[in-house]
Design a binder for these strands. Structure first.
Length: 486
RNA sequence: GGUUCGUUGGCCGAGUGGCUAGGCACCGGUCUGCAAAACCGUAUACGGCGGUUCGAAUCCGCCACGAACCUCCA
């Protein structure tokens, strides 16, 4: 089965053919570590985690590079020109690198709880200033940039005469020149569409490095060009990121690489869609975001309760990565219930007893799941197929259908591969916290209740159940016993 | 204004030129001392108007509405 992925460059699904045998280079734009990760950050992380997992699953050797942006992004407010990291640091009276480390650690922790595999390489922009300076020099040497008062700008118009600036986002430079507003007080840039490759640092700017043009810092888009090609080569397979990065970030990256290296570095561009809240993008600038930690603790006015990392992951995987997914507590709760049912079925599958023959049809499941993944990572279809199989599992469990040993083994294998290996869903850890003695005490109580039930002593039996329920326990009566959880 | 993309049943969310997506909720049923849980099952849909077609929710056109990007943003 051949993997097809949607390439933003062609706006079609294309068959994935690696540039170098069975080795795949994958670069994804990582977080800017000046704040806590929110649900929007989980989307690309999970999307490309799925891609990473699936490419690995089908046998590719993948080098996955996801950067940490810790320099060079400018804020567009009264402090324009001031580095985000530097600004936050000054407010908190912390060293910039202290802020970077703090939020990087928290990002890693959140990713781990979401069961997002760490990338092969996680380069920091601040550790690749030399490479970025070299890259600027290459673009200057090629004649596609100019120096102005210590800063270096990319000459978009000149580039566009030879190449096509705007081919990723479908933008037309002439229209942009007409429609972009005039630069206020900006005299360094020749044209509004030009973008910075190197910026001279103002005196109060903390993060700065020496370069041939000035003490300053690299432009916004340069780090990905420098680090992507450093670790994956001048031409590599896949570049991913959020749709909001398509323009200008990725467009500029394409131009930089073409100008500096003479090559179209990336074969497939992939973009995940946004998470919305009440139909609007969840984002920092709108102030409507919910951090991952808030999801995990339930500490946010819009959340009716806490949601586990696996629920968040499942919720995101229930939508296709190129669709927007609208957040709501109700939708999260629906996902939570659905996933719990699926995972219970998965556990149940391990204990199913085989029969001589199968009366359920499970043969095509693996192929259907593979087919869905090969169709541009259609995880919602994979999940729906698993739910279909879940029905068969439950029917066998109830004794209404039977399954042969071979079919059972196959089904167990498919579930293990798709649920754990590819979708990366972990069975939730046993919520029943506490030690063995505590568990036995509850068991003891419920055994007493069982005895009361056998004696038709409903008063005692209901009393035990009601009081445990009031304490927060969930009691389930089963055929010849009970189950409980807190 | 430009670019890109959406509009699916009560909610979330797939997909397809003719054949049940799936989940949650609802309703019906099984089970149960009762209940809960669990399990099984049924129903409801493709923004509007035209066109192409034997047939369109699926393709094309127009319109309406919405979103993202055009400024840091996953």
């Amino acid at each position: 089965m051949n993997l097809f992925i949607y390439n933003t460059l062609s706006r079609t699904k294309e068959e994935f053919v690696p540039l170098h045998g069975n080795k795949v280079g994958l670069y994804v734009c990582g977080p800017t570590v000046y704040g806590d990760g929110h649900l929007g950050h989980a989307r690309p992380a999970i999307t490309f985690d799925i891609l990473f997992r699936y490419l690995t699953h089908v046998g590719y050797k993948v080098r996955y590079v996801r950067n940490i942006t810790d320099v060079g992004h400018l804020e567009n407010d009264a402090d324009s020109g001031e580095d985000k990291i530097a600004k936050k640091a000054r407010l908190d009276e912390l060293e910039p690198m202290e802020v970077v480390q703090y939020f990087t650690n928290r990002y890693h922790k959140a990713m781990e709880s979401l069961n997002v595999l760490p990338p092969s390489i996680e380069p920091h922009a601040s550790a690749h200033i030399m490479e970025q300076i070299d890259f600027v020099q290459k673009i200057l040497d090629a004649g596609f940039a100019y120096e102005s008062e210590g800063s270096v700008y990319f000459d978009v118009e000149k580039y566009n005469q030879k190449h096509n600036y705007g081919k990723l986002s479908g933008r037309n430079i002439d229209e942009m020149l007409e429609t972009t507003r005039d630069l206020e007080g900006q005299t360094e840039k020749r044209r509004s569409v030009d973008f910075a490759l190197w910026k001279k640092a103002s005196p109060e700017h903390i993060m700065r490095w020496k370069a041939p043009w000035s003490d300053g810092f690299p432009g916004w888009h340069l780090e990905c060009s420098a680090m992507g090609t450093k670790y994956l080569g001048e031409e590599f397979d896949i570049h991913g990121g959020g749709m909001d990065l398509m323009f200008p970030h990725h467009e500029c990256e394409i131009a930089q690489n073409k100008a500096g290296l003479g090559k179209d570095s990336v074969k497939y561009w992939m973009h995940n869609n946004m998470v919305t809240i009440n139909g609007q993008k969840m984002g920092k600038s709108l102030g409507n975001f919910i951090t991952l930690e808030q999801f995990f603790t339930g500490n946010h006015p819009l959340l009716t309760k806490a949601f586990s990392p696996m629920t968040v992951r499942f919720f995101i995987l229930q939508a296709h990565y190129r669709s927007t997914v609208d957040f709501s507590s109700a939708a999260l709760e629906a996902s939570e219930k659905g996933m719990a049912r699926l995972m219970e079925g998965y556990a149940r599958l391990q204990k199913l007893a085989p029969s001589a023959t199968s009366t359920v049809e499970t043969a095509g499941l693996r192929d259907k799941c593979e087919e869905a993944m090969c169709d541009d990572l259609n995880t919602p279809i994979v999940i729906s197929c698993l739910f279909d199989a879940l029905r068969a599992i439950n029917l066998v469990h109830d004794g209404k259908e039977t399954i042969s040993a071979d079919d059972l083994k196959e089904l167990q294998s498919v579930f293990a591969v798709f649920i754990e290996e590819i979708l990366g869903l972990k069975p939730e850890s046993e919520a029943s916290s506490g030690n063995e003695a505590y568990k036995r005490a509850i068991d003891l109580l419920l055994n007493l209740r069982l005895e009361a039930k056998r004696n038709k002593d409903w008063a005692t039996s209901d009393k035990i159940r009601n009081e445990l329920t009031a304490l927060g326990f969930e009691i389930k009566d089963t055929k010849d016993g009970f189950e409980w959880k807190i």
